[in-house]
């Protein structure tokens, strides 16, 4: 196994770069990072729409989120792969296709996380902001969302871990991410499939487990921040 690693580690990590497009583990992490960064604003927008007081905004978005969450990610990838070129007229490569699919898919999941985060902010916060005269939009922007998003930080790191795993589906459309590279290596060495795929699994494990531990540490650190404490519970009082 050692010589397997020694021979192929560069290919595994960066694909054919610089002699070709970026691939391997670097591409996996890049794709996941970019997808999450783009999915977050979409998720916040969709999450806000999900709690909107206006039905005309709330219902279509709820339907959209329901559909995206009811089908496998691979379905969304296929939608992007087969239909996006004919709708937009632009032929995207595998990276672009996978990125769009991930942004849409993760955006829908983040919408639910954001919605739960917003719901988790005590109603009194909303009332006191409105009592001061702040509009709904100002209240969301300056009071509710800052609190909701800060509490969501560990969830976001976990979502990053999930997205890294999701990038593996790029294999199916020929994206040269790390699983695809592993398969390429396997066709070259042929009789050592178990070793190759065990190494692949180990790579994912180290990356994802490491990030989960980071999320855990982050949660501990955040619990100590002054501006994030839950307010001390007042004594129970009569109505």
């Amino acid at each position: 196994m050692i010589e397997l690693i020694q021979t192929y580690w560069v290919y595994f990590l960066v694909g054919q770069y610089p002699k070709g497009p970026l691939g391997g583990l670097a591409l996996t992490v890049l794709l996941a990072g970019l997808a999450l960064v783009l999915a977050l604003p979409l998720g916040v927008a969709l999450g806000l729409a999900r709690v909107s007081p206006y039905r005309v905004i709330r219902w279509p978005v709820t339907a959209l989120v329901f559909v995206v969450r009811g089908v496998p990610l691979l379905m969304v990838v296929f939608w992007a792969y087969f239909f996006l070129p004919s709708i937009t007229g632009v032929k995207t490569d595998q990276f672009g296709t996978m990125l769009i699919a991930l942004v849409v898919f993760d955006g829908a999941y983040l919408a639910e996380i954001v919605r739960a985060g917003i719901r988790g902010v005590p109603k009194g916060q909303f009332e006191s902001a409105r009592s001061l005269g702040l509009s709904y939009a100002q209240t969301m922007r300056r009071v509710i969302l800052p609190q909701a998003l800060r509490h969501m930080l560990p969830s976001l790191v976990n979502q990053f871990v999930a997205t890294i795993k999701e990038t593996s589906l790029g294999y199916i459309i020929g994206l040269t991410e790390v699983s695809f590279i592993a398969a390429q290596i396997n066709t070259q060495v042929f009789t050592r499939g178990a070793e190759v795929y065990l190494l692949l699994g180990l790579t994912y494990f180290v990356l994802c487990f490491g990030l989960s531990r980071f999320a855990f540490w982050l949660e501990q650190r955040l619990a100590q921040r002054k501006d994030l404490q839950p307010l001390p519970q007042p004594l129970k009082a009569s109505a």
Binding site: T191, A194, Y197, L200, G201, F205, L207
Partner: peptide
Amino acid sequence: NVPLLAHLLFWYFGAPE
């Protein structure tokens, strides 16, 4: 911590060996 796709690849291409 390992994606399902990698699991499938292992059990199909790797394990039978």
